[in-house]
Amino acid sequence: MTSDNALTSVEAAVRRRSGDLVELSHSIHSEPELAFAEHRSCAKTKALVAERGFDIAAGTAGLDTAFRAVYGAGSLAVGICAEYDALPELGHACGHNIIAASAVGTALALAEVADELDLTVVLLGTPAEEAGGGKALMLEAGAFDDVAAAVMMHPGSYDMANARSLALSQVAVEYHGREAHAAVAPHLGRNAADAATVTQVAVGLLRQHLNRGQMVHGIISEGGQAANVIPARSAMDYIMRADDTSSLRELRDRMSDCFRAGAVATGCDFEVRETEPTYLELTPDRWLADLFRKEMQRLDRNPVTAQIEAGSPFGSTDMGNITQAMPAIHPIVGIDANGASIHQPVFAKAAAGPSADKALIEGAVMLARTVVGLAQCPTERDRVQEQHLAR
Rank of each mutant, 00 (worst) to 15 (best):
V14I: 10
E179Q: 13
S75T: 13
A37I: 01
L90W: 09
H92C: 09
A193G: 04
R298C: 06
M1C: 05
T323F: 02
N211Q: 13
A57N: 09
M215T: 14
H388M: 06
A265N: 11
G125T: 10
S27A: 15
H176S: 15
A77E: 01
L248K: 00
P231R: 08
A111V: 08
L299F: 12
K358F: 03
S256M: 14
A340L: 06
H330L: 00
E295T: 00
S25Y: 05
G373K: 00
A57C: 08
T379I: 06
R383M: 00
V171A: 12
L137G: 12
V70K: 04
A325S: 11
H217V: 06
A328T: 02
K294G: 06
L21R: 07
T106F: 07
A103S: 15
V198C: 14
D244K: 01
E23Q: 12
I99H: 07
M326T: 10
M240N: 04
L48A: 11
Y158A: 15
I56D: 01
C268V: 12
A350V: 07
A66G: 11
S27V: 03
A114S: 07
T370Q: 03
S234M: 06
K358D: 11
L205T: 11
A232Q: 15
H92M: 10
V384N: 00
A226L: 14
S341M: 14
A193F: 09
M215E: 12
A37D: 15
M296F: 10
M326Y: 10
R178T: 13
L34F: 11
E130A: 07
A202D: 04
P303D: 09
A43Y: 05
R17A: 13
A161P: 10
H29R: 07
D194G: 01
S27R: 14
S246I: 15
V173A: 13
Y175P: 07
S355G: 11
L251A: 11
V10R: 04
D253R: 12
A328R: 04
Q376K: 03
D300L: 08
F36V: 06
R17K: 11
S41A: 12
V121T: 09
A232Y: 12
G95Y: 13
K294Q: 13
A196Q: 03
H92S: 09
A161F: 12
A141E: 03
G339A: 09
K358I: 03
N228F: 03
N97Y: 05
G134Y: 08
R212G: 09
A149C: 00
L251K: 03
M160F: 12
A35G: 15
A12N: 15
L282R: 07
M1F: 09
A351F: 05
V22D: 02
L117R: 03
A310H: 00
A47R: 08
N228W: 02
S157K: 12
P231Q: 04
G311F: 10
C94V: 14
N5L: 14
G133V: 05
L139Q: 04
G72S: 04
G177P: 06
L48K: 01
A114L: 01
T266K: 10
L108P: 13
A35N: 13
R52W: 13
Y71P: 02
R369S: 11
T283P: 00
S355Y: 08
D253T: 14
I56M: 02
P277I: 10
R164E: 03
E129P: 00
V151D: 00
A375F: 02
A66Y: 08
S169T: 06
G267Y: 04
T283W: 04
R381I: 01
R298I: 07
A161N: 13
Q214G: 03
